[in-house]
Computed example of a mutant assay.
Amino acid sequence: MNSSRVIVVGSANQDYLVRTPRSPRPGETTIATSLAKQPGGKGANQAVAAARLGADVHFVGAVGRDDDGARILRSLQTDGVSIDDVSIIDSQPTGLALIMVDDAGENSITVVSGANSTVTADRASRAVRRLAQPGAILSLQGELSVAVLEASVRAAADTGLRVLINLAPFTSIASDVVALADPLVLNEGEAAEMTGLAVADRAGADAALEALRSRARSVVITLGPEGAIWATSDATGHAPAEATDEVVDTTGAGDAFTGAMASAIARGSSLADAVSLGTRAGSFAIHGLGAQSSYARAADLGI
């Protein structure tokens, strides 16, 4: 039985996007050209990206009992994401991300966890077990605690769920948890941190991929404008990104990639096809400002 169910255990933040001609140097003040507020958080981003491509998405996380939290929940529901497993917390405000985007579309991000820090390993693992069904996939990122990530993965393994682990931002997790990743998804910087190798070009990325393929069931390394490379125990491949002359904002492009991959895997696609769809979704996302607001729907990608 193939399922389109994607279970996302992850963060939900209110993004504050500041546009500036260039990033300030240490001690320097720059004048921003605009400020926008949008829903974000790596977990919520990936949930929306998967849902917009037709997946049955269930989000497990937490927001504060405040206007930002209410706005995030409304946005998730509008995109068809189930919020039955999102806790509303009185003791912490909704998480937020301060995002600076320069004229080249590059960004720098600072995250304040807020309510995300209240998600416990016990609650997350119980939700995973309850939501599990044949053919579904669990998707996780690095913005919640290591304890939550590891407990969720082990619960998924107990129930036969396939697991996608996106270690963004990078955090060290137990080797037996890494071994369950199918796939483990990293960008170049995260792959460098995990392997200790220099990943400054395609050759470095290929070396990191080779070093990681024995540590997880499958591995994907994203390469920005060069697309992504992937490996299983017996095959490797490269999915090029679509060429583009205009980059508006790279914020959330990696989440668009990962959410699209999860939706494809849940539909029964091969890893190669899932990575290909991910690169198309990521390429689409960089043409819009912000994360979720820039994500593709099925019709945008011709699926």
Results as ranks from 00 to 15, higher is better:
Q77T: 10
V86Y: 09
S75K: 01
A127Q: 11
N116I: 08
T118I: 05
G80E: 06
R130A: 15
V119P: 02
M100D: 15
V111R: 04
A124Q: 04
I89N: 09
I99H: 11
N116K: 04
A121G: 13
N107G: 12
D84W: 02
A127C: 14
L76C: 03
D84E: 15
S108D: 14
I109G: 08
D79S: 00
T118C: 10
D85Y: 09
S108W: 07
I72L: 11
A97T: 08
L96S: 13
R129E: 14
L73E: 02
R126A: 14
T110Q: 13
L131A: 01
R129G: 13
R74K: 14
L96D: 07
D84Q: 14
A115M: 07
V81M: 05
T78F: 03
S87G: 13
L76V: 02
S117W: 01
Q92G: 00
T110Y: 11
A121L: 06
A70Q: 10
P93D: 10
G114C: 09
G105N: 12
A132M: 04
V111C: 03
Q77M: 08
V101D: 13
D103T: 15
G105A: 14
I72T: 01
V86K: 08
R71N: 06
D103L: 08
P93R: 13
T120Y: 06
I89E: 10
G105P: 10
S113Y: 01
T118Y: 09
V81L: 02
R126P: 06
V112P: 00
T120E: 07
D103F: 12
A104R: 15
G80Y: 01
I88L: 14
V119I: 14
V119K: 03
S91K: 13
L131R: 07
I99C: 13
Q92C: 04
D90G: 10
V86D: 04
D102T: 12
V86E: 07
L131Y: 02
G95I: 04
L131W: 03
S75Y: 07
A124S: 12
V101P: 11
A70E: 07
N107T: 11
Q92I: 00
V101K: 12
T110S: 15
R74S: 13
L96F: 10
A70M: 03
S117H: 05
A70F: 00
V101G: 13
A115Y: 07
V81H: 01
R130V: 05
S113K: 11
S87N: 10
T78R: 14
I88V: 15
S75E: 05
R130I: 08
N107M: 11
V111G: 04
D84H: 10
M100A: 15
G114E: 04
D84G: 11
T78G: 04
I72E: 00
A121I: 05
T118A: 12
I89W: 00
D90W: 07
A127D: 06
S125F: 10
G95D: 07
P93N: 08
S75W: 01
